[in-house]
Design a protein around this nucleic acid. Sequence first.
DNA 1: GGTGCTTACTTCCCAAAAGAGAGCATCGGG
DNA 2: CCCGATGCTCTCTTTTGGGAAGTAAGCACC
Lengths: 138, 138
Amino acid sequence: MESVTQNGSDQGRPEPWPHSTPEVEALVREMIGRVADKWTLILLEVLEEHGTLRFTQIGAQVGDISQKMLTKTLRQMEFDGLLTRVVHPVIPPRVEYTLTPLGRSLSEAFCPVWLWAEANHAAVMQARARFTENAAHE
Amino acid sequence: MESVTQNGSDQGRPEPWPHSTPEVEALVREMIGRVADKWTLILLEVLEEHGTLRFTQIGAQVGDISQKMLTKTLRQMEFDGLLTRVVHPVIPPRVEYTLTPLGRSLSEAFCPVWLWAEANHAAVMQARARFTENAAHE
DNA sequence: GGTGCTTACTTCCCAAAAGAGAGCATCGGG
DNA sequence: CCCGATGCTCTCTTTTGGGAAGTAAGCACC
């Protein structure tokens, strides 16, 4: 009753993720904070799907991203080694963005999340409706 | 030349994710925007790891989250059906949070991302160092 | 020869959101 | 009669993000 009830109802799931050390976990947290970003995720998907794209092409694929956020997210991803930015010194300028193997591996790691979202958006909508209904009753 | 060059250099990768319709994709994008949040991800991990937790226990596990963001994120996740919030009407108050099956399935979907972060944080650090070095040369 | 067009940004301004920190409500114990 | 413990809630400050305008530079067109 005094501790956090690390209860036995943990039905046979020993430890889903093997965390090694606290310092690695802190590092991983920092990376998650960096990578768990809406635009980063969407840019990963768009580039994975289309290969090499130019600046305005990416913007057109995403649809509702401002140029400022597009530039910022692309630069951040380049800084983190997720994509390469190739500038062709021609007029008008031509800049091509391509995922690196690192970026492609991250994109693949996010694949289950996209599948989850596709499979469960109906469940989430139901949960929201139920929540709203319950809030109305109280 | 009129379409987006679904080029042949797509070395044998046919279509990673089967997108059905644009409307579903828009819905999925909305969910990704909701779920691809630093605190949501970390709370999912903490709750998956510890089972049922109280408000302050979650805050202690996360470490550097403000109570306001903790409340807000928890409410959002409850609204989306990712966790349940059980209030025991005692003094001092006791509120317990537990992942729903939906939340646990999302947590599992994010598992590869955590593994990616653990496996590749060194690569990201190297990429950052390389980027900084190249920027200094230019 | 001047004017405008194109692309990929960059900068400015302002609204919206995130985040920190203090306050609040409740009741049992001293 | 006041303190502490807990789970919020409110206020204030900092950061983020959108939209629009500006920039550079060669090329087509009148």
